[in-house]
Every structure is written in structure tokens, then in C-alpha cells.
Amino acid sequence: MGLAVILCLITWFVLVNSRKMAPLPVSPTSAMVLVPPPTLTPLPTPTIYVSPTPTQRPGLPPASGGIQVGGYVQITGTSGAGLRLRSGAGLEFDPKFLGMDSEVFEVKEGPVEANGITWWYLVAPYDESRSGWAASNYLQIVTTQP
């Protein structure tokens, strides 16, 4: 009986005091201002194409140099100086521009022998105006004709 009375008193005390608790003060000019994050504008993603694996891989170049019309070559071995692509197959022709190490070209014509050098007519795959005759000494096959 006494225990029940004590429990009732405790319950009454808790309920009365909980009603007296003041709500948390809310300042009309709060120090914290929530800034919504900026809306991100999605940047465009490029279209990516990967061609299927060729059924017959072009393979390593034949032992005889391997450069052939329709294949691709890259310039190599100029130590950054670049390779002169000329208006004709021979040292007497004027250079048109410099091809740089690792620059890729498609082989369009050749070979032509002149000045003890084998020459190939190359065209950049991205700019047909970037074309000229190049000495094979500084050409490395990327692929033979696909």
C-alpha cells in the first residue's frame, strides 16, 4: 500500500514538472542560416565508342619494314625535334611541316626511293591538309592495313 502511494507521488511529480519545462527558445534572427546547395548543372559526357576486337588482329609488322599503303604509322626517334614532311619524295623538296614523335599518320602512297632513303606519303587521320612525304627511318608501324 505504502509502495503504491510512493509510486503515484513520483508519477504525479514527473508529470507536473514536465509540463512546466519551457520550450527551447527560437530566436527570430538565428545566427545559423541554412544555405541550400547550388543546383549542379550536369556536364556533358562524351560519346565513347570502342570498336569490337578484330577477328584477325593486324599483328606485328612483317620483317621487311612492314610499312604499307593503308596502314598507320607513328613518328619516332626524333628526340623531340620532329620529322620534316616534305612536298615530294626527296631531300630536295621543301618541308611542309614537322611531324612530332608519336604523331599518327595514314600511309597513302609509296614507297619511293630517293637519296638512299625510302619515302612514304603520309596523311594525318584528323586533318588531310597535314600531309607530306616522310623518310621511313623515323616511322614506326602502328598497324598494318586493317
Binding site: S51, Y72, V104, T143, P146
Partner: peptide, 26 residues
């Protein structure tokens, strides 16, 4: 890039850039 093409037949990746430039990478 606007478009990236990896051509496994000739082992060259070509990128068409949005400024009009075109790159070819072995």
C-alpha cells in the same frame, strides 16, 4: 571531348574536341 573512338582495328584512339581540334593517339 565531344566524341571518343577507340578503334581496335588500327590501334588508334581518336578524340573530337569541342573546340574543333581532333587528336589521334596510338
Amino acid at each position: 571531348p565531344a566524341e571518343i573512338t577507340a578503334n581496335r582495328a588500327n590501334s588508334i584512339v581518336t578524340i573530337q574536341w569541342n573546340d574543333g581540334h581532333r587528336s589521334a593517339y596510338p
